[in-house]
Nucleic acid binder design. Structure first.
Lengths: 223, 223
DNA sequence: AAGTGGTCTAGACCACCGT
DNA sequence: CGGTGGTCTAGACCACTTT
C-alpha cells in the first residue's frame, strides 16, 4: 500500500475526505477513539493527533465524556467565525437578511441580498454559486430568512464552508448601493470580496459585500 | 506549589513568559528537549506538546536535527504575517517606509509614517507607542528605513509583537491624507486600526493606517 | 458501573544535522 | 558518529457523561 507522509497526516486526510464527501454528515457522532483507531489501523495516540488537527480546523467538535461529532454551522462558534462585523464597542451583533433577487444560468446561481443590523440596512451583497453544487437552489424572496445562508448550504445541498479568503478595498458608493444603504453617492464603503472553500479545498461560493462602516467595524485578529 | 490546569499548559506559559520577558532573546537556541523536560520536571512528550503550541503561535521555530530557536521577526514568515497588502493579482509586495515625524511626551511616543509600494505613496500611518517600553526611541527621519519597524522594536527595545487585533472601516480622505497619497479629498480610503500585543498579551502598539486600495488589496484568510 | 475523551509517561525507532 | 527533533506505540490514570 502507498504511504505518503506520516501516519497521522494520512489518517487526517482520510477523515477529512469522509466529512467533505458527506459520508459523515454534519451533526453525526464519530465512532469512539479506540474503535476508529482500530479501523484505521493506527494507535489511539496517532488518531488523537489527527482528530486534534480536525478540531483546530473546526471540522469536528469533541466533548469529554460524550464523544466527537462532525461540526455544524448552526453551532455558536462557526456562526460567528465567518461574520466579522462588530459594533463600535467591539460587541458582536446578530444580522438579519433578506434575499431580493435570484437569477440563474447553466453555470451559476446569482443572489442579491440585503443585510440589516439593528434594523438598519448596512450591507448589500452579490453572491455567486456554482450551479453544479446547488441544483434547485431556492430561498423565499423579500422575507427574513430563518437561518444563515451557510446553514442553508449545508442542510439543503450538503455543502459545508470550511475556509474562506477575503480581499478588502475601500470604494465609492454607486447609485444602486447608495440607495439601498441610504448613503450619498460617492460615500466610502468597505468592499469585501470573499471566496469560500469546502473541506476539500474546492471553491463553493463567491461573495461581494459592500458595507456601510459608519457604525460597524470589520474586526479580526492576526495570530 | 500551585498547579492550575494541565502540566502542558503550565509548561507553555512558563516558556512563554521567558520569551516575553527577554530571558530568552530572539534568535537564541533553546535547550534540547530532554534537558528542558528534565528542568521543568515533565516528560519529553508533555514538553513537546507545549513547544508545539508555541510553534503554532510563531514564538519559536523548530528544525529537525538542529534544535529550536526563539523566533525572530526578520524571518521570512513573520515579516509577511503582519503585512496583508497584496497587488491585484494576489502577489505579495515589499513596501518601503519613511518616518516623517516623531513626537513624544511622558506617556507616549507618536510616529507619522508614509509607506510606498512600487514607488507610489499608498499608506499614511500614525503610530503610538507606550513611552515606558520604548525609552530613547529614535529612527532616522525622512530616510528609507533598513528594517521593518517591528524588527526595530525587537532589536532595540526587546519588544516582540506576537499578535494583533485590527478594526477596518472605509473612510473619506481628509485634506492631509489626500495630499500625502495624491488622491482627491473625499476619496475612499481603507482605515486599519491595529492594536498589537506581546507574548504576554500586553498592548505594545496602536497604529492607524489609511490605505489607498485602488491598486492594492487587503488580503487574508478565515480558517 | 461502564464508556467516553483528557493527561501523562516511557520507550522504541526513524530522519536529519553536524563533526 | 553522537545529538537533535519527528513519529508511533502501549499503558496507566483522571475527569466527565450517561445508564
Amino acid at each position: 500500500m502507498l504511504r505518503p507522509g506520516p501516519l497521522y497526516a494520512q489518517a487526517e486526510s482520510l477523515l477529512r475526505a469522509r466529512i467533505a464527501d458527506g459520508a459523515w454528515a454534519p451533526g453525526m457522532a464519530l465512532p469512539a477513539e479506540p474503535v476508529l483507531a482500530a479501523e484505521l489501523g493506527v494507535s489511539q495516540g496517532t488518531l488523537r493527533r489527527a482528530l486534534a488537527a480536525l478540531e483546530r480546523a473546526r471540522l469536528i467538535e469533541k466533548v469529554q465524556g460524550k464523544g466527537s461529532v462532525v461540526a455544524t454551522h448552526s453551532s455558536e462558534r462557526a456562526r460567528f467565525h465567518f461574520f466579522k462585523l462588530r459594533d463600535a464597542t467591539g460587541r458582536a451583533i446578530t444580522p438579519t437578511s433578506v434575499v431580493t433577487r435570484i437569477t440563474r444560468d447553466a453555470r451559476a446561481v446569482r443572489i442579491a441580498r440585503l443585510r440589516l443590523l439593528e434594523g438598519r440596512a448596512v450591507i448589500v451583497e452579490r453572491i455567486t454559486l456554482p450551479a453544479a453544487r446547488f441544483v434547485g437552489f431556492t430561498v423565499p424572496l423579500n422575507r427574513e430568512l430563518p437561518d444563515e445562508l451557510y446553514v442553508h448550504y449545508q442542510r439543503h445541498h450538503g455543502v459545508t464552508v470550511a475556509r474562506a479568503e477575503e480581499s478588502l478595498t475601500a470604494i465609492a458608493a454607486d447609485s444602486v448601493a447608495a440607495q439601498a444603504l441610504d448613503v450619498p453617492v460617492g460615500a466610502p464603503l468597505l468592499s469585501v470580496d470573499r471566496t469560500a472553500f469546502d473541506a476539500n479545498g474546492a471553491a463553493v461560493e463567491r461573495r461581494i459585500s459592500l458595507i456601510d462602516t459608519r457604525a460597524h467595524h470589520y474586526r479580526f485578529s492576526l495570530d
